[in-house]
Computed example of a mutant assay.
Amino acid sequence: MSSPGTERILVFIPAYRCAAQITRVIDQFDAQVQHRIDTVMVVDNRSPDDTLEAAIAQARSRITGCQFIAWRNDDNYGLGGSHKAAFRYAIEHGYTHLVVLHGDDQADIRDLLPLLDSGAHRDHDCLLGARFMPGSRLVGYSLTRSWGNRVFNLLFSLAVRGRVRDLGSGLNMYRLKAFEQFYYLTFPDDLTFNYMMLLSSYARRHRIRYFPISWREEDQRSNVRMVSQSFRVLGLLASFMIDRTRFLARDVRERVRAAYPGTIVHRHGAE
Results as ranks from 00 to 15, higher is better:
1 M>I: 06
1 M>H: 09
2 S>E: 07
3 S>P: 00
5 G>T: 01
6 T>F: 07
8 R>L: 03
10 L>C: 02
11 V>M: 01
13 I>L: 01
15 A>E: 01
17 R>Y: 02
17 R>H: 08
19 A>E: 14
19 A>L: 06
24 R>D: 12
27 D>I: 00
28 Q>D: 08
31 A>Q: 07
32 Q>G: 00
33 V>F: 04
34 Q>Y: 05
38 D>C: 11
43 V>I: 08
43 V>T: 08
46 R>N: 09
48 P>S: 01
49 D>E: 01
50 D>W: 00
52 L>D: 02
54 A>T: 04
56 I>Q: 03
62 R>K: 12
63 I>L: 04
63 I>H: 02
64 T>R: 10
67 Q>K: 12
73 N>M: 13
75 D>E: 15
76 N>L: 09
79 L>N: 06
81 G>H: 12
82 S>E: 05
86 A>L: 04
87 F>I: 03
90 A>Y: 10
90 A>D: 09
91 I>N: 12
92 E>Y: 06
93 H>T: 08
93 H>W: 03
97 H>N: 09
97 H>T: 00
99 V>R: 14
101 L>K: 11
101 L>R: 10
103 G>M: 09
105 D>C: 13
105 D>Q: 04
109 I>Y: 10
109 I>E: 06
109 I>W: 08
110 R>C: 09
115 L>D: 02
115 L>M: 13
117 D>S: 15
118 S>D: 09
121 H>M: 12
123 D>N: 08
124 H>C: 00
125 D>S: 02
126 C>M: 12
126 C>I: 07
134 P>S: 07
134 P>K: 00
140 G>R: 04
142 S>K: 07
142 S>W: 05
143 L>E: 15
145 R>M: 15
148 G>K: 14
149 N>H: 15
150 R>I: 04
151 V>W: 07
153 N>R: 01
155 L>Y: 03
158 L>I: 12
162 G>Q: 03
162 G>H: 06
168 G>M: 11
169 S>H: 04
173 M>P: 00
173 M>D: 01
174 Y>C: 01
174 Y>Q: 01
175 R>G: 01
175 R>C: 02
180 E>N: 10
181 Q>N: 13
183 Y>C: 01
184 Y>A: 09
185 L>W: 15
193 F>E: 03
193 F>W: 11
199 L>F: 11
200 S>F: 10
202 Y>R: 11
206 H>A: 13
208 I>E: 07
209 R>A: 14
212 P>L: 15
213 I>Q: 10
217 E>S: 10
219 D>C: 03
220 Q>F: 02
223 N>V: 13
225 R>E: 12
225 R>P: 10
225 R>S: 10
227 V>Q: 07
230 S>T: 11
230 S>Y: 08
232 R>Y: 05
234 L>R: 09
235 G>S: 14
236 L>C: 10
238 A>V: 14
240 F>S: 09
241 M>G: 05
241 M>K: 10
245 T>H: 13
245 T>R: 14
245 T>D: 11
249 A>E: 14
251 D>C: 15
252 V>C: 14
254 E>M: 15
258 A>Q: 13
261 P>K: 15
262 G>M: 06
265 V>P: 00
265 V>E: 12
268 H>T: 07
269 G>R: 08
